[in-house]
Design a binder for these strands. Structure first.
Lengths: 241, 241
DNA sequence: ACCTGAACACCGTTCAAGT
DNA sequence: ACCTGAACACCGTTCAAGT
């Protein structure tokens, strides 16, 4: 990785990929996705826009690097000692909280193809799926299901955060949506109308974890029995000899 | 909705919101997300860019309308006669196929907050969840889990489609990613390395449905027994009197 | 090797002016 | 009421010129 000793003398204000990415994260956090501009970033770093291009290929690479930085920073929990279920919940919550703190990163995560960030999440999930005793052929499916669910929530939370953005507070927002749902056409939206009032005292984080648990319950159905145990299909069947 | 009789004489080339949205969908399909430009759209419609603003508020509204149009068109299946599981799979596949045909719509779907398109999908899923016998308090969670999973896959597929975009064909693409995964650091990515070769002959559509089934399996654990049936916990237990 | 900042080729959006 | 298209205020990106 990066060397620890830096032989060159570094002026404090010297540009570097690292400083650029850090400044980009800051700008994104403060001003939102539209606030990241090469001009604004250059001003922040006290240079011209062209200088940034020496260290970074283009804007989408910069966005990817910023997303990477945020998740690397936020997801350092070591859960080697947890049960696999707990570890999976911890990984999921790590992603959830990172997006809560940096909504723009949620948008990016949902859009990027198999980039390093996502691969890291996939790996952590997959390892625990393996520990859970899911047979090899089904591990990919199980890990993907968890990842895709997490990515879906990520995008949704990012979108909601953008919809909120300074205008109203969370409670008022939920209240508004709940009221809107309650006044939908009963013929076309019976179900949504029905659950409208559940929206009012609704905790995103709890609901997110409930979804994870639902998928975990499904995954446990794939589980092969630990060595020596009686497989469920033969349990209770009478031997006929 | 729209009236069928139009008293005003309509010249064939007259502008209208409908024609604009249709042209936008066409442009998006052909040139991708970056291809939708007010200038290009205006040229396509043989007007100036300003004319479009008379019928449409701004670009994001136009994108939303285009997304709406695509999903409304693609998701008209009536599955009232199916089992709830089948109906849920049909809804999910409808979304999947719509995104396959219009990747840009997948990106939009993942980003938009609770807009009409998503609400329609949520409603369809929720109604079937209800039929499945999930208790009222858990219906929201179950429907949300399904929706978020679908949205996650939507975003991912859209991202992949964008990554492909003309360059290579699907098989080569999967081959490349598979090779990349296989050469990852075994210390850091043991799981991902392990499943690398499963990627080679991997069917997105099948995997998508497998994920749906996984969540459905989890949901069936929430199910309250239909009236009159023996609850699973007591089945096979011997009465002790 | 690294930085500067003017310049290029675009955008979305507005608006006076037309019909 | 609807359309036109020039003009405004931005973008990302490039590149000759500097150190």
């Amino acid at each position: 990785m990066a060397t620890r000793t830096r032989p060159t003398q570094r002026r404090e204000d010297a540009l570097s990929r690292e400083r650029i990415v850090d400044a980009a994260v800051e700008l994104l956090d403060v001003t939102g996705e539209d606030g990241l501009t090469f001009r604004a970033l250059a001003a922040h770093l006290k240079t011209g826009p062209g200088a940034i291009y020496w260290h970074v290929t283009n804007k989408s690479e910069l966005l990817l690097a910023a997303t990477d930085a945020v998740f690397a920073r936020e997801m350092t929990a070591d859960n080697a000692k947890d049960t696999p279920e707990k570890a999976i919940r911890a990984v999921a919550l790590g992603v959830f909280d990172a997006i809560d703190a940096h909504p723009w990163a949620g948008t990016q995560l949902g859009l990027a193809p198999a980039e390093p960030v996502m691969l890291r999440i996939f790996e952590r999930l997959g390892r625990q799926v393996q520990v859970l005793g899911v047979p090899a052929a089904a591990q990919f499916t199980a890990a993907s299901a968890l990842l895709n669910y997490i990515l879906g929530v990520a995008g949704q939370n990012a979108a909601n955060a953008r919809a909120l953005e300074g205008t109203t507070n969370r409670t008022d927002f939920l209240e508004t949506v709940s009221a809107a749902w309650a006044s939908l056409d009963p013929g076309e939206y019976p179900f949504t109308r029905n659950v409208a009032d559940q929206l009012r005292d609704h905790d995103d984080r709890v609901q997110f974890l409930d979804g994870i648990d639902l998928i975990l319950a499904g995954i446990s159905g794939l589980r092969r029995a630990p060595a020596g145990a009686v497989p469920p299909a033969t349990r209770g069947r009478r031997p006929d000899a």
